[in-house]
Simulated assay, not measured.
Amino acid sequence: MERMILTPRLACIAALIPRGARLADIGTDHGKLPVSLLLSGRVAAAIGSDIRQGPLDHAARNAAEHGVALPLRLAAGLEAVRPEECDTVSIAGMGGQTIADILAAAPWTGDGEHLLLLQPMTMVYELRQWFWAHGYMIECETVCREERRYYVVLSVRGGGPVRVVPLSSCAFSPALLQAAGARDYLEKLLQREIRALEGMQSGSAVDRAVLDGQREIVRVIKQAWEELA
């Protein structure tokens, strides 16, 4: 049986999943991540959940074709997953706000007993800010590149202190600065934020507080990027 080929983003998540884990893959789509992990024997069990029936049907076919047992749930977020069914949760390819909403609707994810592997597509700063405000600890950040774009995968666990952190300090975490490829990631991030600042400065009606906040984001990222040289 041929192994399941994963995209760089999914391969990055797969490499972070502990051996013997019981995985709940949320937004599983075609089930490629859990099927691959079951095939390799890396996980002891896996559940796939998605809000749409079409992708779940495809995931069921993938699981059957590869001869693995993958229970599938039609539900939003973690609504159909019980805490005792998993010790690891993966959510990839969703916006940061959606990920925060999913976790907020499942308070047990903050108990410190579940490892959360999260790959946000947007609003990464806001997601980090939400983690810290709700006692989730960012244990590790991993940088991966897919085509021309950089992504981060956050390894998160609940049970930490509640911290109020300004958004300008959420462009990265201390864990990200330890990651391979962190400087390249920050360079791309800095270029993007400089372009955003220049766009604001050329506008005719930009709120001063918003402009100052953007300048601070650029300053913080630039300082971290230079210190990694």
Rank of each mutant, 00 (worst) to 15 (best):
M4F: 06
I5R: 14
R9C: 04
A11P: 08
C12S: 04
C12I: 01
C12T: 13
C12M: 00
C12N: 00
I13L: 13
A15G: 04
A15Q: 02
I17A: 01
P18A: 05
A21H: 00
L23N: 04
A24R: 00
G27T: 10
K32A: 15
K32H: 14
P34Y: 07
S36K: 13
L37A: 06
V43R: 06
A44S: 09
G48C: 07
G54N: 13
P55M: 11
P55T: 09
P55H: 05
P55R: 11
H58L: 08
A59G: 03
A59Q: 12
A60G: 12
A63I: 03
A64V: 00
E65W: 07
H66T: 14
H66I: 03
G67V: 06
V68R: 03
A69H: 15
A69P: 03
A69M: 11
L70K: 12
L70F: 07
L74N: 03
L74I: 03
L74E: 12
A80P: 04
A80V: 07
A80I: 01
P83D: 02
D87V: 01
V89I: 14
A92R: 02
G93N: 09
G95D: 06
T98L: 11
I102V: 12
A104H: 13
A105P: 03
A105R: 11
A106D: 09
P107T: 02
P107Y: 11
T109Y: 00
G110A: 12
G112R: 09
G112M: 13
E113Q: 14
E113D: 08
H114D: 08
L115W: 02
L117Y: 00
L117I: 15
L117H: 05
L117A: 00
L118M: 13
Q119C: 13
P120A: 09
P120H: 01
T122K: 14
V124N: 06
Q129D: 04
Q129P: 05
F131I: 14
A133K: 13
G135K: 08
M137A: 07
E146K: 07
R149K: 15
V153F: 00
R157K: 12
R157I: 14
G158E: 05
L167K: 15
S169F: 08
C170S: 14
F172C: 04
S173L: 08
P174V: 10
Q178E: 11
A180Q: 07
G181S: 01
R183S: 05
D184N: 10
L189G: 09
L190M: 00
R192I: 10
E193T: 01
I194V: 11
I194M: 11
A196M: 10
L197I: 06
S202T: 03
S204K: 05
D207T: 13
D207R: 11
V210D: 15
L211P: 01
D212N: 14
D212Q: 13
Q214S: 02
R215C: 05
E216H: 08
I217S: 00
R219V: 03
V220P: 00
Q223A: 13
A224T: 14
L228C: 06
